[in-house]
């Protein structure tokens, strides 16, 4: 045997400085908690601050261009100023008709979107699991999918006895395919090892579906829901502008016809805020349903 000399570096060397090797982290100044909190959240502060400044600059630029009626090939002559829009907003908020427009749009979105989710998610899960179903349904989906929901407007009017029905149908169609495609993708990307692990632990078909395929697909399903919600709004507004009698899309289009230019901007901003709120709501639900996914 060969002799191997191993010397422990830790014990054989004298301390570099006589007892003065306290961890640096513990020697924080008093009241350092607030400081530390600020330091740890610096990135968020920065983002919020820059975001606010950039919004303010945007509104200021808008005010400048419209108040001075600038014309740089693009004409800001008839564009309402932010101040005008704010004035109209105050009036509108006191007028129940405006609230009705918003509520009707929200109801259509909710109906169309919930129907789409309620059908596309289970359908996608089944299609992802059973090849025969996929083979039957996929070609039809691929043909229908590229048709924009707006192109369905004439057909929808013929199909549905009420105007309301056809608008909800358009909204439904807009969100259906993004949800379906994403659910399918979620099913396709389920780690087969997890399925095998579940089966080795005694899970039968139904349990594998419920305990593995469904939760494993959830993140992708929620991506589909987010995209679907966006497309639902696009489709709804277009449908309302073409064939509506109520709704925020109709309100915006009507404002143009009635030469109420401030109301156009008000309608647009309202649509933006509603879209923002609905995608935020989906994110919140997603976080509640998928506590294991780290928030981004």
């Amino acid at each position: 045997m060969e002799a191997v000399a191993i010397r422990s570096t830790a014990s054989s060397e004298p301390p570099l400085m006589g007892g003065g090797s306290q961890p640096a982290l513990q020697s924080q100044p008093a009241g350092g908690r607030t400081h530390r909190w600020l330091r740890l959240h610096r990135a968020e502060f920065r983002a919020t601050l820059i975001g606010l400044v950039s919004l303010a600059v945007f509104v200021a630029l808008w005010q400048y261009l419209t108040a001075n009626r600038i014309t740089l090939y693009v004409r800001f002559l008839n564009i309402p100023t932010p101040v005008d829009v704010l004035g109209r907003a105050v009036i509108a908020l006191h007028n129940p008709v405006f609230g009705d427009h918003v509520l009707i749009s929200c109801r259509r979105i909710l109906l169309g979107f919930l129907l789409a989710g309620g059908i596309a998610v289970p359908f996608g899960l089944l299609m992802g699991r059973y090849r025969i179903l996929r083979e039957i349904a996929f070609p039809i989906c691929e043909v229908l999918r590229p048709i924009p929901a707006i192109a369905w407007v004439p057909m929808a009017i013929m199909l549905w006895p009420t105007n309301e029905g056809s608008i909800v149908f358009i909204t439904f169609l807009g969100s259906f395919f993004p949800i379906l495609i994403n659910t399918l993708q979620g099913m396709a990307s389920v780690d087969p090892v997890l399925v095998r692990a579940a089966r080795c632990l005694g899970a039968r078909e139904a349990a594998v579906f419920r305990e593995v395929y469904l939760p494993a697909s959830l993140p992708q399903i929620f991506t589909g829901l987010t995209v679907g919600m966006g497309v639902a709004w696009v489709s709804l507004i277009a449908a309302e502008m073409i064939s509506g009698q109520f709704g925020i899309g109709y309100f915006t289009w009507e404002a143009y016809s009635l030469v109420q230019y401030s109301d156009i901007a008000l309608g647009m901003i309202t649509i933006g805020l509603l879209g923002l709120a609905s995608s935020f709501a989906i994110r919140i639900v997603g976080r509640l349903v998928m506590p294991w996914v780290a928030p981004r």
Partner: peptide, 25 residues
């Protein structure tokens, strides 16, 4: 029982829920 080279814990279950899985089945 089988153990795979790839980690095969269910990401949506806590450690305890993972251990419970076979009993649940």
């Amino acid at each position: 029982g089988m153990i795979f080279q790839q980690y095969s814990l269910f990401p949506w279950m806590t450690v305890r829920e993972n251990v419970e899985f076979g009993l649940k089945m």
